[in-house]
Design a protein around this nucleic acid. Sequence first.
DNA 1: AAATGTGAAGAGGTTCACAGCG
DNA 2: CGCTGTGAACCTCTTCACATTT
Lengths: 221, 221
Amino acid sequence: MIEPGFGVSIPRLYAYHRALRQAEAAGEATITSHDLAALLGHTVAPTQIRKDLCALGALGRRGHGYTIAPLAAQLAWVLGLENDWRIAIVGFGSLGHAFATFISAREKRFHVVAVFDTSRNVIGQVWQGVPVHDIADAPRVLRSCGCEIGVIAVPAEAAQEVAERLAALDVRAILNFAPTTLHLPASERAPVIVRNIDLAGELSILTHRLTVGTLPAAEEA
Amino acid sequence: MIEPGFGVSIPRLYAYHRALRQAEAAGEATITSHDLAALLGHTVAPTQIRKDLCALGALGRRGHGYTIAPLAAQLAWVLGLENDWRIAIVGFGSLGHAFATFISAREKRFHVVAVFDTSRNVIGQVWQGVPVHDIADAPRVLRSCGCEIGVIAVPAEAAQEVAERLAALDVRAILNFAPTTLHLPASERAPVIVRNIDLAGELSILTHRLTVGTLPAAEEA
DNA sequence: AAATGTGAAGAGGTTCACAGCG
DNA sequence: CGCTGTGAACCTCTTCACATTT
C-alpha cells in the first residue's frame, strides 16, 4: 500500500511527526497545515504538507485542520515508530557511545541491545546494563538477540569488514558513520538497507555555502 | 561563478572528493567516471558524475579520464575545504565530544577552537588544549576567536536559545544536532545558514524501509 | 468563511543518446 | 577506439489555482 518511493520524502514525514509531538505537548488537539509549516520554520510549504498527508490517506477536516493524535499515530506507523527495533552498535568510541545514549533517550522503541568494540579498554564496560562485547563474539551475541539494525561507528578502515559481518548475521539495515562507501553484494535474501551519515560531509555543506556566497538561508533536514 | 544552486548536489561532490582521496592514497593518478562510480558503490551513474564535474569546468581528458590531483583540488575548493574554519561547539556531552574528536581528526582545516557547556562537571575540562567554557562566557570567548561555524549539541529545549546567542555573536553557520526546528529571524546582515542533523530521523528512514518492505537497496548520503 | 484535497503547470534534477576529442 | 562533454528527453517533486467540504 505504501511503497518506498510513493512521492513523499521520509525525512519530511519525520519532521512532521516531531512537530506534531511538540504541538501535542503544548496542549493542542488540532493543527492546520499552515500552523504546522510555521512550526517547521516555513521550511516546507502548507501545500506540500497537505500533499504529503493526503498521500497517507485523507485525515483532515476541511475548514478545521488536522486532529493531531490520529495524524501522529498514522505518521508513526509509516515511519516504523510503532514497532520495537533492536539495535547493535559496533564501535563504542565516543561516537558510538553518544549515538547509543542519544537514540535510546529519544525514541522509546529503539533499543540498544548489543554493543561491540575491539579495544581491550572498552570491552567489558557496561552501558545501561548492556555489556560491551568483543566483535569476535558477534556471531554468538547477535544470534541470541537478533538485531534488525546495526550502527557502524568504527574507523573507516574497519567499516567494510564490519558491514560484511553484520550482513552475514542477518542484520537488515545499517546506519554507517564511517566516512567510506560500503560495498555489500546483492545477497541471496533481501538486500541490506544502508544509510550513510557523513559528519564531515554535513559540515562541508556549510563551508561550501560560506565559501561561494551566503544567498540561501533555507534550512534543510 | 558557482552559485548555491548550480545544479549539482553538494553531498555528492563531497562523496566524489572522498573517493578521490581514497584512489589517490591507493596510488592512482587518473580515474574514469566509470571507475569513480564503482568506488562509490554505483550509487551515482557515470553520466551523473560527468555532468557534475563538467559543471565545475571541464577537467577530464577524453579517452583517458580525469587526473585525480587537480580534480580533487577543484572539488576541495568548491566545498570550502581549502579554507580554514573555526568551529565552536556548544554542549560538550558525549555527542559534542564525539563530534569534536571526529571532525578535527577527519578534516585538518576544521579547527575546534571553542567549547561551551552549562554543567559544572564539564566546565573547566580541557579537550586537546581547548578549555570548556561556561556558555555565559560565550560573548567574550567568541569575540576573541571569531568562529564562523557553531555546532549545537545541547538538549532540544536549550537549542533555540543557543542558536539565537550564536547568531548574535556573528556565527555565520550552524550545524544543529538538537531534534528541534530553529527559528532564526532574517537578520540585518547575511542570514545564518542552518543545517540540521536528526539522528533519530536518520534511523527512522531505516525503520520506515524495514516496515513498508525491503525493495530498494540503494545507498544514500 | 476557512481550510483541506487535487489536477495541472512548473521547476529541478537525472538519464539517454550521441557528438567531440585525444 | 575510449571516454568525456552536452543538448534533449524524461521523470520526479514542488508549487499553483481552485474545486470541495464542513
